[in-house]
Nucleic acid binder design. Structure first.
Length: 378
DNA sequence: TCCTCTAACACTTTTGAATCGC
DNA sequence: AGCGATTCAAAAGTGTTAGAGG
């Protein structure tokens, strides 16, 4: 498993690879990732981001767009993304707020989405921002399309992996770093619960223009079963105007460390036309790693490093390693509810807490017993 | 009864093939 | 013939909501 070292200087060599690092891995610690649409993410995060998941897959909105610096221009990298449980709870939307509804269900197979441009040189990745627009979320555990599988009413956050490798077949041996951004945490839902989120999505998502108030599309046109115009939309808008901020509070967020030591194997495959866009599925017990996320003043780049260490396997991220600090380490949901979640933070507070976390592995081979990708989904 | 999920709906945006002009 | 710009239809994607199911 892993121990975690927090560094305030990316140039600090905090990683302790247990095997000789790759010849050119010395620069790994300087890779920086920036969330491109952080303001939009923050807007959603302040309310409590919800992501629709459907049987056939739904895109993420806001979509994940990041930029990279500090890569070696001529070295090849593979960029990957996966979704990690925020905590070990299941939630429900009750009386205009999220409440803990019990323990999380067993995690579905973990899938990793590889950016379609992968592999590409560092100069390519640094040339422009990377968009993960095509990532789709599903609640279908039998999904065959490579979509990322999530549980509804559970909280997740996306995680990005920068792996120095020439091909998907060698990612396991390449040095890599992992990044995540606190404001990208979301609750997976099959239907929107918080009307504020609905409004925000309609305002920002071009595909939802037809649902904009005053738009060309009339909700009254709905004719299935002769049903009346969308009553819910009206109610929701009313709720938007009346619900106090406190009602939008999210339950507590917590982070737990999670690591594994199972056999790894890399089996990239593609059924969507090209090899570069594939997802890798992992058994829940074989998650790449789930790291504690520390809080620092930051500009959306990453400072945290992680090195392999010997720890007991944790099926969920340990609450002790909370990304958002709480007065107590008590994991009692009821207790957790008593504390304002990240979504209730004011903008100023939020800004102070918004920083991605960064995990540096000197070489993926160092933790080959902690599989990055245990098996492919196709 | 309550909660969650699914499918159909009307609409917009995106995509890509076909066409046109230089 | 080759290239770029334009057009247009099909595909993809969106939130809403009634109804099904647990």
């Amino acid at each position: 498993m892993f121990i975690f070292i927090v560094s305030s200087d990316c140039k600090s060599n905090m990683s302790v690879p247990r095997s000789p690092p790759a010849a050119d891995s010395y620069q790994q610690g300087c890779i920086r990732m920036t969330l491109e649409n952080a303001d939009l993410w923050k807007s959603f995060h302040n309310i409590g981001t919800e992501m629709i998941i459907t049987k056939h897959g739904r895109r993420v909105f806001p979509h994940c767009s990041v930029s990279l610096t500090g890569l070696q221009p001529f070295a090849n990298y593979i960029i990957m993304m996966d979704m990690v449980p925020e905590d070990s709870f299941k939630y429900k939307w009750k009386k205009n707020q999220w409440e803990v509804a019990g323990k999380a269900e067993p995690q579905p197979p973990c899938r990793t989405y590889m950016h379609p441009d992968s592999p590409a040189t560092g100069s390519h990745w640094m040339k422009q921002s990377l968009s993960f627009l095509k990532v789709k979320l599903t609640n279908n555990t039998l999904d065959q399309h490579g979509h990322i599988i999530l549980h509804s009413m559970h909280r997740y956050f996306p995680r990005f992996h920068v792996i120095q490798a020439d091909s998907p077949y060698t990612v396991r041996w390449g040095p890599f770093q992992t990044f995540s951004f606190p404001e990208t945490t979301f609750t997976a839902v099959t239907a929107y619960q918080n009307p504020k989120i609905t409004k925000l999505k309609i305002d920002h998502n071009p595909f939802a223009k037809g649902f904009r108030e005053g738009g060309t599309h009339s909700h009254g046109k709905r004719c299935r079963n002769g049903s009346p115009p969308a009553k819910r939309a009206t109610l929701d808008r009313k709720a938007l105007c009346s619900s106090p901020p406190d009602l939008q509070r999210m339950p507590s967020t917590s982070q737990s460390a999670q690591a594994e030591k199972n056999q790894a194997s890399v089996q990239p495959s593609s059924k969507e036309g090209h090899l570069s866009a594939w997802a890798v599925e992992q058994d829940p017990s074989e998650r790449l790693h789930t790291e504690p996320l520390e809080l620092h003043e930051y500009d959306y780049s990453c400072e945290e490093q992680m090195v392999p260490a010997s720890m007991a396997y944790q099926p969920y991220r340990l609450v002790e390693y909370t990304r958002f600090p709480f007065p107590s380490n008590d994991v009692d949901p009821a207790h957790a509810l008593a504390h304002p979640p990240p979504h209730t933070l004011s903008t100023a507070e939020h800004g102070a807490q918004q920083q991605p976390t960064y995990h540096h592995h000197g070489n993926a081979a160092d933790w080959s017993q902690y599989p990055l990708f245990s098996y492919s989904c196709w």
